[in-house]
Design a protein around this nucleic acid. Sequence first.
DNA 1: TTGCATTTTTTTTAATACGATATATTAATC
DNA 2: GATTAATATATCGTATTAAAAAAAATGCAA
Lengths: 232, 232
Amino acid sequence: MSSDFTVIINEYMPLRELVFTTLRQAILKGEIQPGERLMEIQLAEKMGVSRTPIREAIRKLANEGLVTMIPRKGAIVAGISEKLLMDVLQVRMTLEKMAYECAFKYITDEQIEELKTAEREFETAIRENDLVKIAESDEKFHFIIYDAAQNDKLKEILTNLRENMYRYRMEYAKNRESREKLTREHSALIDTFVRRDSVEGLKIVEEHIHNQETVILEKIKEDAAASQKKTK
Amino acid sequence: MSSDFTVIINEYMPLRELVFTTLRQAILKGEIQPGERLMEIQLAEKMGVSRTPIREAIRKLANEGLVTMIPRKGAIVAGISEKLLMDVLQVRMTLEKMAYECAFKYITDEQIEELKTAEREFETAIRENDLVKIAESDEKFHFIIYDAAQNDKLKEILTNLRENMYRYRMEYAKNRESREKLTREHSALIDTFVRRDSVEGLKIVEEHIHNQETVILEKIKEDAAASQKKTK
DNA sequence: TTGCATTTTTTTTAATACGATATATTAATC
DNA sequence: GATTAATATATCGTATTAAAAAAAATGCAA
């Protein structure tokens, strides 16, 4: 059905991983909506594999919280509640600050250069109005900081928290206002590394997350209104 | 058994969950050592089930980081490195502080009472020198705080971080010195809720984690020395 | 039509068997 | 002794089966 089956795989990748990433993408992109059921046989037929890799993929998705499993009934795509999203953002706020502080201690000149490169990419993406590229280069920017923090567990958790909000990451890429904010914040953040001003840096990180919160909350309200209208 | 009819109902538990918890316990208790292989057929025979639930349990363990999976080779029990443990403790330090601050905002009188009860249990366990009970009531104490913080994601992550160090949790239960420290810290912490002194509370949390770090590091060094002696 | 009980279907859960493939070990060859 | 070939072992994936449970369909009486 979808066109991108031309995924070139260098390393050996078990089928379950392939199924996992495929389903994951479908859920995050909204192709499979929250509440929809994931049925083994159906999916197996659709994807041309046996049930075993499907099962294993679904269980992995459940572990990540993307689907909810009901014993002896099956799996449904999990919807994310507003409360949970706020909880996630609150934890992210704390850990992004921690990541910044650690990065501040360890960051090298090369990594600062990498940040600048990522930032240039980001700006190019904005000029070209390439939403996917905007979201990707934003992510790249932050992962450089996570790496600089030199704490694998922190990186792992932050990556996971980001994934929890993957569905909304396009929202600030769409919005002109928040895009400008993002650009400003990114360059200002690089500047704090150069100027060695961590106090200012933490402020920017805080504002950064707070902006995301605003945009996402708006989107949720929008969605809720839309679904209300639909079921009237 | 005859008086309370609500307790008797044992929920349905899939075989994979049973296998999962069994293996998990065995790993955490050290019955299966790091580096040992987990082979599907062997385990299936040993536990009297088929390979299917074994496979699913092993994958779940891999997801938790307790075992490492090597494609087309199998799964081995993961050893935790000193660096990773330090990373975990660093993140825990940040999040335990966050949990304390949130709990400080929302904690109710009833929850403070619960803390006092847990603390009494803890002291009883120490008097009876019951190591398992010591570790359990310590955990209970902290979970009351996590609950009071009213952030599900935070609780989830902290629970997981705790599990990362499950292997070492008995160590401070053994040590007389750290046991006394624990008791003092617990009651002092309760006191900060009552006196509404969050600054002092944060200090105690910080010290609490720091003490654990010391004890665990000592244990690791001990283990390393022992294994060196063994392979001489 | 409505409400209730029964039957059928669907789906997960679990067991089992088999072939293919990758890795490790051992044996053989140079 | 080092390299290569043969063997053994284990995972990976497919396929089939049976049991258990839930959901859907059906039938029937009021």
